[in-house]
Every structure is written in C-alpha cells, then in structure tokens.
Amino acid sequence: MNHAEAAYGLWSLVFINSAIFIMFAFSFFKPATARDWRSFGAFSAFIVALFVEMYGFPLTIYLLSGWLQSKFPNLDLLSHDAGHLWSTLLGEKGDPHFNALHIASYLFLGFGFYLLSSAWNVLYHAQRRHSLATTGPYAWSRHPQYVAFVMILLGFLLQWPTLLTLAMFPVLLVMYGRLAIVEERDMHREFGAAYDAYAGATPRFIPRFLGRVGAR
C-alpha cells in the first residue's frame, strides 16, 4: 500500500476546482433574487463538499475504512482511485475514469451545463421583454434550470459519491421542488391566464418526450 504521491491534502485543488465549477455555473445562472441566491448557494455548498473529499480530506473513506478494508483487503484506501466508490463496490478493475459510470457522469455534467446555459439565454431575453419564457428548454419543462442543476449533481455523484453529498442530494431535490412552486405562484400573479395555459401544457420538471414526438 505504497503511494507514488499524495492523493489528499491538496487544498489548492479543492479551491481551484470549486471556484471553476461555481463560477461556471454562476455565469449561466446569474442569481438575482434572494430565492436565486439560496438555490445557487445550496448548489455551491454541494460542490465544495464534493471537492473537499475528492482532494482535501476523505471523510467518507475514513468513516467506512474498517468495513472497506475488511471487504476489500487489498484496497489502497489512501489512493485516489479508492475514492471512486461505485467502481470499488462493484468490484471493477482498471482505471475508474474510463468505466461506464464515469463516462455517464461526463454526459450528465456536459448536458447539465448545456441545459443551464440554454435555459438562461431564453430566460434572460424573456425578462428583458417582460414576457413568459416558453421557448427552447422552457417549451419542454417549466424549470429547466433546476433540472440542469440536478443533472450536474447526479453527474458528480456518479463520479465521486460521498456520505455528505449523498445526504445533501435529496435535501436539494426538495429545496428545488419548493422553489419551483414558489416561482410558479409568482408567475401566476404576474401573467395570470397566460401562465396557467403554459403550465397546463408544459410539465414542471420531466419533459413528456413521447407525447411530443407522437404529436409531430
């Protein structure tokens, strides 16, 4: 169980990676209201917690070390690869960065950030016109930005699960669900029947792909 180099205690990487992903998300989400800042703050807390365990201190590995070492006696707990717990628990061999779950995580992350960018662009122009956002991603979902955040979180969980981020994930889901309901009340007050018609035809989160395809 020798290590060629330190896998943890790399706090500069914690800071750099956290800053990159938070600033990247901020550039698309651009929180304006207190509600926006709460949702973005929760997302940022998830990102920081993730990278602290990925490069700083492996709390999850530490807490599960006894069980992991008994189940996988040849596992080098302090290696970076051991932090990819899905790969370890599934008994996969080789570089975990190239397994199916890791590749799927890249797809979730890539599409999540793409959706976040596309949704913000539509919302920005709608706000400037003081009109409803109903085109692009908003034609498929009433809250594509929250869907994008959830996809990004799922991407990270597929890549590097930790006890803290796994616990935070359902809390964030509930938070985004409640924020969506509050936003819908605001939209109803502002746009009335127009928003009601839009809401009646467009799902809150999960698009009705089959219905849309069949209608074409």
Rank of each mutant, 00 (worst) to 15 (best):
A148T: 12
D76Y: 04
G192P: 08
Q145I: 03
E184M: 02
V150E: 13
L64N: 06
H3W: 13
D76W: 00
E92C: 09
P31K: 06
G91Q: 00
G112I: 09
V122P: 02
Y114I: 12
I103E: 06
E190K: 13
L13P: 09
L77Y: 04
G9W: 03
A215I: 06
P137E: 11
L157S: 08
L63I: 07
P203R: 03
S105W: 01
D76F: 06
F21R: 09
M54A: 09
R212K: 14
S141G: 13
L172Y: 14
I181V: 12
L210W: 15
S117D: 13
R212S: 09
V182R: 12
T134S: 01
E92N: 08
A133E: 07
S12A: 12
G155C: 07
W11V: 00
S39H: 15
L172F: 10
L50H: 08
D76V: 06
N121P: 03
S131M: 08
M54N: 13
S118I: 12
S141W: 06
G94L: 04
A34E: 11
F191A: 09
R212V: 08
A42T: 15
L77D: 04
K30N: 09
T33S: 13
R142G: 02
L132Q: 04
L173T: 03
M151I: 07
F15K: 04
S131V: 11
S118H: 14
Y55S: 07
V150I: 13
L157W: 03
I181W: 15
L173H: 07
W160I: 05
S87M: 02
L75V: 00
Q159V: 09
F28Y: 11
L164T: 04
S39G: 15
E53D: 01
R189N: 14
I206P: 11
M23A: 15
F209I: 02
E53N: 11
Q69N: 10
D76G: 03
A25N: 13
G112Y: 06
